[in-house]
Simulated assay, not measured.
Amino acid sequence: MRTRDTYLQACYKRLTARRGPMKALVAIKHSIITAIWHMLTDNVPYREPGGTYVTQRDPERATRRAITALNQLGYPVTLNPTEEGSV
Rank of each mutant, 00 (worst) to 15 (best):
1 M>H: 14
3 T>G: 01
4 R>W: 05
5 D>C: 05
6 T>I: 01
8 L>I: 12
10 A>H: 10
10 A>N: 09
11 C>K: 03
11 C>H: 00
12 Y>M: 01
13 K>M: 15
13 K>G: 06
14 R>A: 14
15 L>E: 10
17 A>W: 08
18 R>P: 03
18 R>W: 08
19 R>S: 10
20 G>P: 04
23 K>M: 04
24 A>S: 13
27 A>E: 12
29 K>N: 10
29 K>W: 10
30 H>W: 11
31 S>F: 06
32 I>G: 02
33 I>Y: 10
33 I>Q: 08
35 A>L: 06
36 I>E: 06
37 W>P: 00
38 H>G: 00
39 M>F: 06
39 M>C: 12
39 M>Q: 15
39 M>V: 08
40 L>C: 06
40 L>E: 07
40 L>V: 10
42 D>A: 04
45 P>Y: 09
45 P>G: 07
46 Y>V: 03
46 Y>Q: 03
47 R>F: 13
47 R>M: 05
47 R>I: 12
48 E>N: 04
52 T>H: 11
53 Y>R: 11
54 V>N: 04
55 T>H: 13
55 T>K: 09
55 T>L: 12
56 Q>S: 07
56 Q>T: 07
56 Q>D: 14
56 Q>R: 15
57 R>A: 13
57 R>T: 15
57 R>D: 07
60 E>N: 09
64 R>C: 00
66 A>Q: 09
67 I>V: 14
67 I>E: 00
68 T>F: 06
69 A>G: 00
71 N>A: 10
72 Q>V: 02
72 Q>C: 06
72 Q>A: 08
73 L>I: 00
73 L>Q: 01
74 G>P: 05
74 G>I: 09
76 P>M: 10
76 P>V: 07
77 V>W: 11
78 T>L: 08
78 T>N: 09
78 T>V: 15
78 T>I: 11
79 L>Y: 06
81 P>F: 08
82 T>Q: 15
82 T>C: 12
83 E>G: 11
83 E>L: 12
84 E>D: 05
86 S>R: 14
86 S>L: 08
